[in-house]
């Protein structure tokens, strides 16, 4: 048995090396993608590029469209998502109801985004007559981010200690008062994380946006207008590449998206770390 030790150790070392190599390779790929895009894109990030309403020069229309889509979809998805999470975590007793809701939410989470696009096109663009517009896209995306909002809000609610609920109810408050005044405020950092994750999803999404919001390059006058989000703009810049500086612009647009993702990641990280620290003293 002892004789095996050396062989075993060599084998272990080989496996260890391959694991470390895989990890390093993945990180390298990540670093490379970011560096490759940002190095070529950063010089293009001028004030003119960000603020010009002329799509040949800048991306202001796309920024605006993206912001509109984010805001409208959050306005729709947040209340529904948070209420659903509260219901699931604070009220629901009937196991059949709970199971049904969870099944629906999990299935929604698994549906590929292009299917949401088909649905939105059919229902919001055609059936409701919104046509390709920001509102149609935002409504579509709001359903898509519902699972994200629900599950992360629920996670936040789960971290609120039972003693808060008991403490409040023992003071003769009603359940809804307890939820509004104690539970939701305590879960707020987690809910903010949910919101930020949802924003990230909406900004990064492309296929359903292409089908429902469209590709109009002008500054949208209202949410009933068609528009072009940053992601779709990036796609069309590379697809059509009519303007001379199309690729330069594409790199700059991709840089904006990457920087945005990095910021979102940093915020959620800090939030959840602070939250753990703070709640750690209570639980």
């Amino acid at each position: 048995m002892r004789g095996n030790v050396k062989i075993r150790r060599n084998k272990d070392r080989a496996v260890y090396t391959s694991m470390a190599a895989a990890t390093i390779l993945i990180l390298t790929v990540l670093g490379f993608i970011i560096a490759y895009v940002v190095i070529q894109g950063a010089p293009g990030l001028t004030w003119e590029f960000l603020s010009s309403s002329d799509w040949r020069v800048g991306i202001w229309p796309m920024l605006l469209t993206t912001i509109y889509v984010v805001i409208v979809s959050l306005i729709v998805a947040l209340p529904i998502g948070i209420i659903t999470a509260v219901y699931l975590n604070e009220y629901a007793k009937n196991p059949r109801v709970i199971r049904g809701l969870r099944l629906a939410i999990e299935t929604l989470a698994g549906i590929p985004s292009i299917i949401y696009g088909l649905f939105g096109l059919l229902v919001f663009c055609r059936f409701f007559g919104f046509g390709q517009s920001i509102i149609a896209g935002a409504l579509t995306l709001s359903i898509m981010i519902l699972p994200v909002v629900i599950t992360s809000t629920e996670e936040a609610l789960k971290t609120v200690p039972m003693s808060f609920r008991e403490g409040s109810l023992a003071l003769g408050t009603t359940k809804i008062q307890t939820i509004r005044k104690v539970i939701l405020p305590s879960a707020m950092p987690g809910i903010i994380t949910a919101v930020i994750l949802a924003i990230g999803r909406v900004v990064g999404e492309s296929a359903p946006v292409l089908l429902t919001v469209g590709i109009a390059k002008n500054v949208p006058r209202s949410i009933m207008d068609s528009g072009r989000t940053l992601t779709i703009h990036l796609y069309y810049l590379t697809k059509e590449a009519v303007e001379e500086n199309a690729f330069q612009q594409a790199f700059a647009t991709a840089t904006i998206l990457i920087v945005f993702v990095i910021i979102i990641n940093m915020i959620t990280r800090t939030l959840s770390r602070n939250y753990e620290k703070r709640m750690g003293s209570v639980i």
Partner: peptide, 24 residues
Amino acid sequence: YVRAGIDLLAGIPSVVYGFFGLMM
């Protein structure tokens, strides 16, 4: 840090992956 990197990888929009693929 590695986990942060993996999370970042998950967050990058698919068009950016597509763009990188197309260019690289």
